[in-house]
Design a protein around this nucleic acid. Structure first.
Lengths: 335, 335
DNA sequence: CGGTTTCATGTAACCGGTTACATAAGGAAA
DNA sequence: TTTCCTTATGTAACCGGTTACATGAAACCG
């Protein structure tokens, strides 16, 4: 591996001159520049980023700390983040935590030791500031960390409302919401949105809580059909749960969407592969990842951090687990 | 951020002594050691990995170059790789290439400039050795790169055979194989395995080629049912295609598995969420990623690279898109 | 024509670690 | 007592870049 000194020797100049050529700064005579470039290509020289990082203190490396890359929602976020980072010349380090606090702490430390320029985190535990090195840019994605840490998320309250409204307008009369765990603010917001609508419309409803384990979910949902056979609309906290609901319903011979409507949440790409395909409240997943990355990079490069909280709107994607007919306003308001 | 010199000053020793304490090598008096450790914890000192890397020339960083993290097969590999790397104290950089040669080359260069210790690659283009720096450890996963680059893969020929055998033994008489693209050796091997069985059993079959785009696949499969309505067994090149086949069949009112059996390939976790769930020839995805990582790390740390090719067996996972009854040997051999 | 800019390049310190080598004290062996 | 080994620690070079500063030549200017 050739070094800058090899290049300098071959070109018959000093290392400073070579550095000037590489970085296009300072004065370099055209002739000198050419001979340096010739030496560079002759030696197939590539500057050592590590040495550069050591002096300049920026590594163009960012961390991505997520619970589990295997969860399709996170996968799609990761894809967006890597795309965006790459576009701006940054490299991303992948860190799976399984939501284990120890691993989260460990990775933060590793990233800082490696002089990462910042990181994007999806974690539950509210990391205390003391754990974090001063001035280490972090943005929280999907889940808030701390009031002073920028946070990008989708409007889950609106999503919960939307889900309930659509199920009702399309004729469901006995709703069930399978909510996510209480420690997730996003699950709480979806639940609140749902609740506010069903209460306003004073429609019958039940709330169940998912463990986010497909096999457990199927048991939960079977149970649901036994206990509340009149259920004709399910709002699932995410698409994977919606899929379990769909599977369980079909297995019991319940017609979807005729007898039972199912609304998923997240809008993962997979949802469209099912039969019937999963109607869902879609988060703008790619944009969430993109925005988080842009905010992080802006923070890194300009030391400023504009919006402390960004909330992106959700969108209903109509597919086949909800009915096509829309009841007219009057009718649905009658109840 | 405290440096080793700050620690040395606070502890009243030289940097060499501090370094010895940190790395537990050389002689250090117990008393000295304690005062150094006190200084370290007082300053909350963490050694700078960049400086260390610069001198030692190992970064404990490995690259993962894959087409698209969004593809569940690659996602699961990535998870296994990150787990294993982390277990051995390595950090992984995520690189999505979309199978674009330029991006592949770019990432190899980036990784080398960052002094990555090696990388795991899933690429099609046979990268010439000249593109690669001397002594940069690379292992090829799922797709071969070069005779001298270690290669870890599953036994796709066996997988193709197994798929055909099972479909036949479970009573299908008119098989279709939706194969993957020709440039993929793994698709070719699955195809050959399938072919050798159907030819030996002289059963009627057709071959189609998927573009790996779910929407195109649905068109392709609709077409298939129009042209070959007698089809009663589909072997899909991967689980996602199998899912498209299932969806298309159900939409046309074809009973699965009674009228049509579907065999997927890969064994991604998602396959079990469908109704009916996808029977599949499962690759040992986690073990593939784990093995690739272990071989890479062994190469990095011992400079030796034991097996140049590792082939892991595949396994049939019986789920619901294949029939439960097994025809007896005699019967199925009769044809 | 002397003084000031601009251009061009080199020298050496610096980033924050690691380690080869030097030095010295204490104990054991001869 | 001399020699040698083990223990303990410090000094400074090194890794491969960047850049502050110094130097000198050419161009410009009144």
């Amino acid at each position: 591996m050739a070094t800058i000194r090899d290049v300098a020797k071959l070109a018959g100049v000093s290392v400073a001159t070579v550095s000037r050529v590489i970085n296009k700064n300072g004065y370099v005579h055209e002739t000198t520049k050419q001979s340096v470039e010739a030496a560079i290509s002759q030696l197939n020289y590539r500057p050592n980023e590590i040495a550069r990082t050591l002096y300049k203190k920026n590594s163009k490396l960012i961390g991505l700390i997520i619970p589990d890359i295997t969860n399709p929602f996170f996968t799609e976020l990761a894809r967006a983040i890597e795309d965006t980072a790459h576009h701006y010349g940054y490299t991303v380090v992948l860190c799976n935590t399984d939501e284990i606090l120890e691993k989260e702490k460990h990775y933060i430390e590793v990233l800082q030791q490696r002089q990462a320029d910042g990181c994007i985190m999806i974690i539950n535990e509210k990391v205390t500031h003391s754990n974090l090195q001063q001035d280490f840019p972090i943005v929280a994605l999907d889940r808030p960390i701390h009031a002073e840490i920028p946070f990008i998320h989708a409007d889950h309250y609106q999503g919960g409302q939307l889900a309930a409204q659509i199920l009702l307008r399309k004729g469901s009369k006995h709703l069930v919401h399978i909510r996510g765990p209480k420690y997730l603010d996003s699950a709480e917001a979806r639940y609140q949105g749902f609740l506010d609508i069903v209460k306003k419309e004073s429609v019958s409803y039940h709330i169940l809580e998912s463990s986010f384990q497909p096999s457990n979910d199927e048991r939960l949902i079977n149970d649901l059909f036994d206990r509340f056979p009149e259920t004709d609309g399910i709002f699932a906290a995410n698409d994977v749960i919606a899929v379990s609901a769909l599977k369980t319903a079909l297995r019991r011979g319940i017609a979807v969407p005729e007898e039972l409507q199912i609304m998923g949440y997240d809008g993962i790409l997979f949802g469209q592969l099912f039969y019937p395909s999963i109607s869902t409240i879609a988060q703008p997943i790619y944009q969430l990842g993109e925005k988080a990355t842009k905010i992080l990079l802006q923070w890194i490069e300009t030391k400023t951090c504009d919006p402390l909280v960004s909330c992106l709107p959700v969108e209903w994607i109509e597919r086949d687990t909800t009915r096509k007919e829309l009841l007219d306003e009057q009718h649905s308001n009658n109840r």
